[in-house]
Design a protein around this nucleic acid. Structure first.
Lengths: 145, 145
DNA sequence: GACGTAATGTTATACAATAACATTATTGCG
DNA sequence: CGCAATAATGTTATTGTATAACATTACGTC
């Protein structure tokens, strides 16, 4: 209940437009990450017709921190990291563990970890503005099976 | 000279086919990462005509550890990490720092860093078979300018 | 030389993302 | 309120990325 309230609140805070809300709804209701085109397919009956309508909504949702893009899959997931979107780290660096069997995605943020990465970047004189960390493999359930 | 000798040796060890050698040659000669299609464009006069010829060569080269795929760019670079391809870590986890201004790519491997990532994965019961780490930002030169 | 395997060539197609332009809401402000 | 600025939308066309399917050719090995 609290979680749902927070989610609704999160949406409200960002005052999602119709298309954004539709796209976010589809992602929230999906276990697995979805491509822009499969999102579109699920929204045809709601009036969406062109990829661009989905891509535009996704761009905003990613900006808001409500959705993540998985670079290695060309797909998107609703943000769901353990600490919740209300934590200060909403827009911080996050790592993803992507199961290649069941498509489940686990999300985590380790401050020390990120610190180490920043340390290396600084030593190299590199100024990062975004960081992508994606593990591909098998999740606990699929590992055993 | 030594470096060149080693590179030649590396190629020889893997007994590259004609197409693989052509593709690898183009990547070696490029500062910036290249897309499969721009590699193709540079190899038309050598007889290559279809994307698949490039993608097939790239797949092998990535398997051999001679080439890396940058997921966030849909592009490829010749392997060039500091320790050199002859080090034991050829196929280990590598991180990339991609300059968005000059397209330069720095490659590095930090064992402690990787260890920490593996530790988290293990705690989660996740069994990774590949790890993607890509920093996007500005390199030292472009940062100042 | 016959067989299994790997690499190649070719055409067509699927999937992902953006360009360009016209139109409609929304918001803020005088 | 009315108007201007800004943001969101709709639509068509195009560009870019990657693979399917199938025929052919080279290569190693027994």
């Amino acid at each position: 209940m609290i979680a749902n309230a927070m989610k609704a609140d999160t949406r409200a805070n960002h005052d999602l437009t119709r298309n954004q809300a539709l796209v976010f709804g589809v992602l929230e209701g999906s276990e697995a990450p979805l491509s822009a085109y499969s999102i579109l397919d699920q929204l045809r009956e709601d009036g969406l017709r062109a990829p661009l309508q989905v891509y535009r909504a996704l761009e905003k949702l990613v900006d808001f921190g409500l959705v993540h893009r998985l670079e290695s899959l060309n797909a998107f997931v609703a943000c769901n990291h353990p600490s919740g979107p209300e934590a200060g780290e909403s827009h911080g660096t996050v790592a993803f563990a992507i199961c290649e069997k069941c498509d489940n995605v686990a999300e985590f943020a380790d401050p020390d970890f990120v610190e180490r990465l920043r340390g290396w970047a600084k030593a190299e004189g590199f100024e990062p503005h975004s960081t992508i960390i994606e593990l591909r493999g098998l999740c606990e359930g699929c590992c055993v099976a």
